Simulated scan of single mutants.
Amino acid sequence: MIFDSKQEFDQSYLPIIQSVIEEAGFPHKLGEPISTIYSMKKADHHWNRKLMELELTHRIKKWRLRNIRNIMSLAKLIGTEIK
């Protein structure tokens, strides 16, 4: 939006941007607003991807464990021992 407006950045928004940085826990210092916002967007994307990878890994491990338990239960039911 800042680029599309083709207007100079309104400095009165700096306290709002700074409060968002602090409340969201970003380790950024407010310098040049456009580069700071871009950097925050990049960091947010990076950590969202890491969180998604952790969630996916957890789901896969949970799925494997459930399937192993199902196979063991089925083997026990039919009288076969699995080692």
Rank of each mutant, 00 (worst) to 15 (best):
A24P: 02
L30I: 05
R49K: 07
V20N: 11
R59P: 10
S19E: 13
A43W: 03
M52T: 13
W63F: 01
G79N: 03
K42W: 07
L54D: 09
S12V: 02
R64E: 12
L65R: 05
M1V: 06
S35W: 07
A43M: 06
S39R: 07
K6C: 03
L30W: 03
N70V: 10
S73L: 14
I71C: 10
H46T: 13
I2H: 12
E23H: 08
I82F: 14
M52I: 01
S5E: 07
Y38E: 12
K41A: 14
N70M: 05
R49I: 12
H46D: 12
V20K: 10
E32D: 03
I82L: 13
I34E: 08
L51A: 15
R69Q: 14
H28P: 01
K6D: 07
I21K: 02
K62E: 13
L14M: 14
K62C: 03
K42P: 08
N48P: 10
D4C: 00
Q18S: 11
K29P: 10
E81L: 11
Q18C: 02
F9E: 05
K61A: 13
D4R: 14
I2G: 00
G31W: 04
K6Q: 09
I21F: 06
N67A: 02
R69H: 12
K29L: 08
K6L: 14
M40R: 02
I37T: 08
G79W: 11
Q7Y: 15
E55N: 05
Y38F: 11
N70C: 11
V20T: 06
E55Y: 09
A24N: 01
L56A: 01
I17S: 11
I78M: 12
E23R: 01
D10K: 15
F9N: 01
M52Q: 13
E22H: 03
H58M: 02
E81C: 08
L74A: 14
E53N: 11
G31N: 09
I21E: 12
K29V: 03
N48D: 15
Y13W: 13
G25Y: 02
E81N: 00
Y13P: 09
Q7K: 15
V20G: 09
I68K: 12
F3L: 09
I17Y: 09
D44H: 12
Y38G: 12
R69P: 09
I21S: 09
L56C: 07
H28K: 01
E23F: 11
K29Y: 13
V20P: 04
I2E: 05
L65Y: 04
L65G: 12
P33E: 05
A43I: 07
K42N: 02
K62P: 04
L74F: 14
M40I: 13
